[in-house]
Design a protein around this nucleic acid. Structure first.
Lengths: 131, 131
DNA sequence: TCCATAGTTCCAAAATCCCGAACTATGGGA
DNA sequence: TCCCATAGTTCGGGATTTTGGAACTATGGA
């Protein structure tokens, strides 16, 4: 059980942030944490939209978000407490996170992605805000 | 030689944009096109910083940017004319591109990434603005 | 002490990325 | 017209990354 790694804010890089949030699942997780202020457990977001994410993948997603500098995690007893580092990150890269979250939210409204799919009318891709 | 694919602006997705720009090379290429208004050839950006990018990789980078909806390319004789779709994209996802480009530019100023590397003091990672 | 819960780690299959080599398309010359 | 140079694309396969099932670790009760 290695210790959790949290980069100092000055070591946080734009490419790591973009990479972390370029995965819709991770973006949804991050949006969730933002919205809740603090999501208690990783498993609290285990289902995004209609898709259940395996525990190991989920663990990895949190790790990516953490090591990109987007969230801070601490073990609280048997579970994990994750909270976003929005304030720090926003001070370093003004407007970046807001623009990204807003962009995803705007994309949810535009449901044109369902049309080319002949089946599964309920939607196929998990998106932020759909948890 | 397949035809060039340019998604309609309403089909442009945030995750594709983030993925495209999460690669520092591609972000630098895009920043270049932005700065120049229009870069005539792909090979005009063949060297980013101190790194020479192979033709095939470069071709692929342009393809990713194009299919993410970030640039529009047209064949002009033997070469390619690439211009950014900033206006369209910015209308759809306000502030997103500006925040990303600004974030990369801010990161260039913070040269703390050189310190943990024991060799290659000339810098290892190409970054936007260093072309 | 034993069990349930919450995450992590390991590992192998699948998906992606990278880049050299071969190819295609266009624009000149000779 | 034929040939060549230039600019970019496609192919192929090795390297890297991602994914998720199974096994493991850590903590809090009963």
């Amino acid at each position: 059980m290695r210790p959790l790694i949290h980069p100092a804010i000055e070591d946080v890089r734009p490419d790591a942030i973009l990479h972390a949030l370029s995965d819709p699942n991770r973006a949804a997780i991050f949006a969730n944490i933002m919205r809740a202020g603090c999501v208690e457990a990783c498993s609290a977001v285990s289902a995004l939209g209609d898709r259940v994410i395996p525990k190991s993948s989920l663990s990895n997603h949190f790790k990516v978000l953490r090591e990109a500098g987007l969230i801070r995690s601490e073990r609280r007893g048997v579970e994990m407490r994750n909270h976003s580092r929005w304030t720090e990150v926003d001070a370093r890269f003004p407007g970046l996170l807001a623009a990204i979250i807003t962009a995803y939210a705007a994309d949810v409204g535009t449901a044109s992605r369902v049309s080319p799919a002949p089946e599964q009318p309920g939607g196929e891709g998990p998106v932020p805000g759909a948890a």
